[in-house]
Nucleic acid binder design. Structure first.
Length: 856
RNA sequence: GCCCCUGUGGCGGAAUUGGUAGACGCGACAGACUCAAAAUCUGUUGUUCGCAAGAACGUGCUGGUUCGAGUCCGGCCAGGGGUACCA
């Protein structure tokens, strides 16, 4: 028996599938239910990594399984091809981003094809292709037409040396990653999608996404962050304009002891103009960085403006107004009042600046006379006191009452506030979809007429000068105003790449349509995506933006659906041990050698190597394993099989050399098993013999239980368990000694079941084994096996017998034995009698087919 | 900081969703085959005590609910993801 030759076999079956057009998605195949499987499309970084292998293996199992279940399947692939890395490569190596990207796409397509994925490659799209982004520009204009895009000023990280805007990840400890110069904050006019217009809808519809992980829905819910509260106007002594604040705790208004505004509040800017110390404080806040994380983890600091705010309900009471580093301009009104007794952050601030702490909520069971706040604010419910007209009310009552009072006096209103902010889409970058807008000195921003699209991204650009190449391109930005004909200039910003990925899934339904972005008939033929698969890191932004975008598409008449993804699965990361040499350099897994005694050394030098814990595969830790080299050494099926083994797909998995070798050995074992058995089997399609011996019957039970179990496991994304059951069936086949015709019949049945169950996971080996069993048809075209219900339940069950909750014996009982009989059998068991002795059981709990617990 | 998730043998993990903890795989050990090795096959393998029968302990820590907790509840600890310009 020769070894399984995966190289020859994998290429041959891939060609056979291709010839037969097995994976073409048919727009007109409407006699079958449709099923749209989609994995998040890759960024074309140059080579696929193990995360891709995991992602696309999972999706391919689902796609192949659903085809076998009789669905008309759409399983496409494309490229998230715009983005920063192409520009970084251009600057580092002088390669034009377009060339770099296209070369990467070609390389990665070839690698993905090696995996034997059941993809309809005719639908391939790349977001950097004008045939894609042309339609995206049109969609942008439709968002604009429907008042879902607007322009306003907002802040960016500015690198004064590179004269460029920096992404948050490019700001390291307040400095530009390339220049090392301290980053400044600048205000630029930018375009925004009005996602907040859908805040309530996006929140509410989460409840309908019952095939999404609960955790993702919770994260989105928290991100949208609906809160009910009040906007209140306060008078600032000696100033005309009142201060507007937002609070979720208007019931604690009597406990207010200070006010704080954001460093970016217009009032802060006005005051800073005449106050150098305040200007310095604002500058210090800016140096913190723009991320929420930096702001929230920084020490809370304030600057007393000297202004006093009047309390609306307490005659003569005034409170200081601070500029504070923890107040966000983007949330609410950029101004708050502080009630230290009932809010921990306010309390910390009050203690630091020695401000009053006036408790206004009395916890149940406390006495108003001696209840005091120490270092912990009281944020729970209770009775309102020290609060004039609200005294004696619950928190909820007080909120209602005070809002009514504020509204009656015309100094505030009850409002709903969302944490969600509008989606800024302008990027001061070259390698992205151009924003189809012209800026005319007379007419202002004017949309490029739809018939003039696409606005092509010029490819003759240079990265020699700092700044955005579009900005200093000699001719590109000059164009006449479509409205008045005057000389205008193009918007030199490009779109956030999240825009590209917010509708690609719909474009896969009609990728060849040159006329319009989307064909409503085809979109509704395939949408929504029935199963979307990708990393948990996209749980909020990408998925929320896509949900927003599809709501826009619905408004413009492109689809009837609100939601892009009916089912979502979030896979875990691929991790690997890390290795460092004595100098602390990270070593590749290929560079080390594990010796028998457990020592780890450098393969070439023999120098000792420190073994680090397992971490996500990354270039920076050098703990990557190259999929192409794995597939070249062991084959695609081995890589796919190991990806699905062991770790549940939603959890992080650990890539190990031992694991991939184990998968390789199993494939060889299957190959030997079928090679040894096949010549002795009855011909394919032989009828079921009239009588079967106990061995044959038992093997049939094992096989049919495997069908039942593996089917459920694939449906539930428990691939690791499906793999375990394939092992169990293979083990049963290994140990089976056929003696008569019935045994051989059962053996053929079990082999056929095994092959058909493993083929979504190892499709090439599946086809090869299917042929060994004497079949001509492509396995990939066959339907999924059905389990015989009579063969999947056992006649007897093992029931555990406990005494006081501890296992003391087991009983073999006929399935569904009655409670009385089970109890009697348990009490009659010698081991139980010995333990119970002559004590009368106080209680006997019987759970049918499971357990008898004797309590003495 | 905030939001979300995860934690079970030497290792990856399983546990019918509150009912026999450790399926299956890896590793290790022992045996068979071999001149030998590799490959393969068979067996053992949570820890401790015991010749054995068996017993005690055991699901990050800690407290609780229950006849019964890996599973439910409270409080911690550790690791990971997100934190709005990485994708």
């Amino acid at each position: 028996m020769s070894r399984y030759n995966f190289k020859e076999s994998e290429a041959r079956w891939q060609a056979a599938w291709d010839r037969a057009g097995c994976f073409t998605a048919h727009d007109t195949e409407t006699d079958k239910p449709k099923y749209y499987v989609l994995e998040m499309f890759p960024y074309p970084s140059g080579r696929i990594h193990m995360g891709h292998v995991r992602n696309y293996t999972i999706g391919d199992v689902i796609a192949r399984y659903k085809r076998a279940r009789g669905f008309s399947v759409l399983h496409p692939m494309g490229w998230d091809a715009f983005g920063l890395p192409a520009e970084n490569a251009a600057m580092a190596r002088g390669v034009p981003p377009a060339d770099w990207t296209r070369k990467n796409i070609d390389a990665m397509r070839a690698q993905l094809k090696m995996m034997g994925l059941s993809i309809d490659w005719a639908r391939e799209i790349a977001t950097c292709d004008p045939s894609y982004y042309k339609h995206q520009q049109r969609l942008f204009l439709e968002f604009l037409d429907h008042d879902l895009v607007y322009r306003r000023e907002s802040w960016v990280n500015w690198d004064p040396v590179d004269r460029t805007v920096l992404a948050n990840e490019q700001v390291i400890e307040g400095k530009g990653w390339r220049s090392g110069a301290p980053v400044e904050r600048r205000k630029l006019s930018q375009w925004f999608f009005k996602i907040t217009a859908f805040a309530q809808e996006l929140l509410q519809a989460l409840d309908s996404l019952d095939r999404w992980p609960e955790k993702v829905r919770i994260m989105q819910k928290n991100w949208i962050g609906r809160s009910e509260g009040a906007r209140v106007f306060f008078d600032i002594l000696g100033r005309e304009a009142p201060l507007e604040i937002f609070t979720t705790r208007p019931d604690t208004l009597y406990g207010a002891s200070f006010f704080a505004i954001s460093p970016h509040h217009p009032l802060a800017a006005e005051l800073a103009a005449g106050d150098p110390d305040l200007a310095a404080f604002v500058a210090e806040c800016d140096r913190l960085g723009a991320t929420e994380e930096a702001i929230e983890t920084a020490e809370k600091k304030g600057y007393d403006t000297g202004l006093k705010v009047a309390h609306p309900f307490v005659e003569g009471r005034t409170m200081p107004l601070y500029v504070a580093n923890f107040v966000l301009m983007e949330y609410g009104t950029g101004a708050i009042f502080g009630c230290p007794a009932q809010d921990q952050r306010d309390l910390d601030f009050a203690r630091k600046y020695d401000l009053d702490v006036i408790p206004v909520v009395l916890p149940a069971g406390e006495d108003a006379k001696d209840f005091a706040i120490g270092d912990t604010a009281y944020v729970g419910d209770g009775r309102i006191y020290n609060s004039g007209f609200m005294d004696g009310m619950s928190v909820a009552e007080a909120k209602k009452t005070v809002i009514a009072r504020l509204e009656a006096e015309d100094i505030g209103t009850g409002t709903v506030q969302y944490r969600l902010r509008d989606w800024g889409l302008s990027r001061q970058r070259y390698w992205g979809c151009p924003i189809p807008i012209l800026h005319c000195p007379a007419c202002g921003p004017v949309p490029v007429p739809k018939e003039d699209l696409p606005v092509l991204l010029p490819e003759d650009v240079s990265f020699d000068k700092p700044g955005n190449p579009l900005d200093h391109h000699p001719t590109w930005k000059n164009a006449p105003c479509p409205s008045c004909g005057a000389a205008a200039r193009r918007d030199t910003d490009t779109m956030d790449t999240f825009v590209d990925s917010s509708w690609y899934f719909a474009r896969f339904c009609c990728p060849q349509d040159t006329e319009k972005p989307l064909d409503p008939d085809l979109v509704d033929r395939w949408m929504p995506v029935d199963q979307y698969i990708g990393g948990i890191e996209h749980a909020i932004l990408h998925l929320l933006y896509s949900r927003f975008f599809v709501r826009g598409l619905k408004r413009f008449g492109y689809t009837e659906h609100d939601e892009p993804f009916a089912g979502l699965f979030t896979q875990g990361m691929v991790c690997h041990e890390t290795y460092r040499d004595r100098e602390g350099r990270w070593l590749l897994p290929d560079e080390i050698d594990k010796q028998a005694g457990g020592a780890v050394v450098h393969r070439d030098s023999g120098a000792p190597v420190t073994l680090g814990r397992s971490e996500k595969m990354s270039k920076s830790k050098n703990n990557t394993v190259d999929p192409e080299s794995i597939i070249g050494t062991y084959g695609a099926d081995t890589a796919r099989w190991f990806m699905l083994s062991d770790s549940p797909p939603e959890r992080d998995m650990e890539w190990t050399a031992a694991g991939i070798e184990g998968a390789w050995r199993f494939i060889q074992r299957l190959w030997r098993l079928i090679g040894d058995a096949a010549p002795n089997l009855p011909p394919a399609g032989a009828p079921l013999p009239e009588t079967l011996g106990p061995a044959a019957l038992s093997l049939r039970r094992t096989a049919h239980k495997a069908i039942d179990g593996i089917t459920r496991d694939i449906e539930a994304f428990r691939f690791n368990r499906a793999v375990a059951q394939v092992y169990e069936l293979a083990n049963a086949l290994t140990g089976f000694k056929a003696k008569d015709g019935g045994d051989f019949w059962a053996l053929r049945e079990a082999f056929e079941v095994l092959v058909r169950l493993l083929t979504p996971m190892m499709p090439h080996l599946g086809e090869e084994m299917w042929r060994s069993l004497g079949h001509e048809a492509l396995l990939v075209t066959l339907s999924w096996p059905e389990a015989d219900p009579a063969l999947i339940v056992d006649e007897t069950v093992t029931v555990a017998v406990q005494v006081n909750g501890k296992l003391r014996a087991t009983l073999e009982l006929p399935r569904d034995t009655g409670e009385e009989t089970a109890r009697a059998r348990a009490l009659a068991d010698p081991a139980i009698q010995r333990l119970v002795e002559d004590r009368a059981p106080r209680k006997v709990i019987v759970v049918k087919n499971r357990i008898v617990n004797v309590v003495v």
